[in-house]
Amino acid sequence: MGILEVKDVNKRFGGLKALSDVNLSVQENTVHAIIGPNGAGKSTLLNCLVGKLIPDTGSVMFDGKSVLGRKPFEINQMGISRVFQTPEIFGNLTVMENMMIPLLAKRDGAYRLHAIESIDHEKDLVETAEQMLKDVNMIDKRNMHSASMSRGDKRRLEMAMCLVQNPKLLLLDEPTAGMARADTNNTIDLLKEIKATRDITIAIIEHDMHVVFSLADRITVLAQGTPLVEDLPENIKGHPKVQEAYLGEAH
């Protein structure tokens, strides 16, 4: 049993079949990459995992519990965090405030009076946030308005915001899209470090094969809404079907 089990998921948008009979099993503490050409249904699948979309049929189980029918915030509280294709941070907040949001979510249960306390009262949360910012080398930017940061910094901040929640499953949606080679390598190093130091499962959607083959333990190839093959990276590289559907087209 994987930590994430997707069974027979179908999703239609009007006449378009975005996902058909998707089965996917992500094992705990692995990096599982999902690749495929544009329009293969990768983002749709991801959206089904975080509650943004609800599949027409099929089931999505995380850690033995169904995620279907739960609201995005509940799914997050189950232990799934997501990093977006374009950095989704709160531009009107400072870096530190951005970091506080996912931490506050951790205790966003019953309403307690401390919800209307100032940030200074949340000493333990502030310490956690500061430690995380140190880990990603952003502590000197803590009071900066996040809108004014570079794209790379925004991406790092977003990653930090997800990691600070200590998720069991981290979903990465093209984390290096639009990055320069040096930044991409930094991201790969960061993810490798995360993988090495934490109890974490990572599912990653990526176009950049360099990133995929540097990180992935297993790879699923998606084409036209259906998983084509799922295998170890070394077997995927030379797979004829993959060449045909994806790599061939890409090069």
Binding site: P72, F73, N76, F90, L93, H114, A115, H121, Q165
Partner: peptide, 22 residues
């Protein structure tokens, strides 16, 4: 307040705040 901070974040991007577990 931390409440206000979350609300400000939500005003900027309601969906993301939800995806972050709030």
């Amino acid at each position: 307040t931390t409440f206000g901070m979350v609300v400000r974040a939500g005003m900027a991007d309601r969906e993301t705040v939800g995806l972050l577990g709030i």
